[in-house]
């Protein structure tokens, strides 16, 4: 069995000019593979986030034995650079805000009017973590490889094995299944840092304004199979809120009125 290093040494030896081109060709494979994954993730992201800066009206539903147990509503502002601002709209949480800047989170409670640092793992509702609601892309956070093909619910899918490229993302590893033809996200297995699978996510696509969009994500819990959390994206609108609204100290202001 040849070792890669042996092959490279052999191809690179002096006088091996004709092998040089072959070497360059072989060396280019990993880069192409990475480019392929990046391109696949960007295509998959486009189903979830149609513009770089958006305002998303989100509802999170927690079902127990297929019966709706709880519901929470959020308005989410997302900007490039992994910036998200979540405004909570349900009566039980009205006035609360969560700001996400890359892997850093702040929570503002309306009673104290003081931004408080929280961690990504602090949950909003059911199986939905703050990161599940505030993050809608993979391409900025993950890289990996196409590890094969699988059939999910009768659909031929590409199986991507992704690892986080940044610290502090909600899930350190994601096994993502994209529809082989359209690259539409179908399913994801979400793993935490311990290596354990935390959730399974299923993506529901509908046509909005003539474009196919992911309009719901259902999270299943492995430990409590009678529970599922559905994150529905009621309205996704291209909107660029000013940078200063993403300052933790500005959370105490009502500056987003009209945005």
């Amino acid at each position: 069995m040849f070792k890669i290093a042996t092959i490279i040494r052999h191809l690179s030896r002096p006088g091996g000019r004709c092998y040089g081109l072959l070497l360059a060709f072989l060396m280019s494979f990993p880069a192409h593979a990475a480019d392929d994954v990046a391109a696949l993730l960007k295509k998959a992201d486009a189903y979830r986030l149609p513009a770089q800066a958006v305002r998303v009206e989100t509802v999170v539903e927690l079902y127990r034995n297929d019966t709706l147990d709880k519901e929470r509503r959020y308005t989410v502002y997302i900007k490039p650079g992994r910036r998200s601002l979540v405004l909570m709209k349900s009566p039980a949480e009205i006035g609360q805000k969560v700001l996400m800047l890359a892997d850093q989170f702040w929570l503002l409670m309306p009673d104290t009017q003081r931004p408080l640092r929280i961690t990504a793992s602090q949950k909003l509702l059911g199986e939905a973590a703050a990161g599940d609601v505030a993050t809608m892309t993979w391409s900025e956070d993950y890289d990996g490889k196409v590890s094969g093909e699988s059939e999910i619910d009768g659909e031929a899918c590409l199986h991507l094995d992704l690892a986080a490229v940044r610290p502090g993302v909600t899930y350190t590893r994601v096994e993502l299944y994209l529809d082989k033809r359209s690259k539409r996200p179908v399913k994801a297995d979400l793993y935490v840092s311990s290596g354990k699978r935390a959730k399974e996510a299923r993506y529901e696509t509908r046509t909005v304004d003539g474009q196919p969009r992911v309009m719901a994500m259902t999270l299943h819990d492995d430990i409590q199979p009678n529970r599922r959390t559905v994150v529905r994206y009621l309205n996704i609108q291209a909107k660029e809120a000013p940078d200063e609204f993403f300052n933790p100290a500005a959370l105490v202001r009502n500056s987003l009125a009209g945005w």
């Binding site: 892997d103 989170f105 640092r117 929280i118 961690t119 793992s121 610290p167 502090g168 840092s193």
Partner: peptide
């Protein structure tokens, strides 16, 4: 001063 370290720790 306050800092979050990783996903689990905060210091202030």
């Amino acid at each position: 001063w306050a800092r979050a370290l990783g996903e689990e720790w905060t210091f202030h």
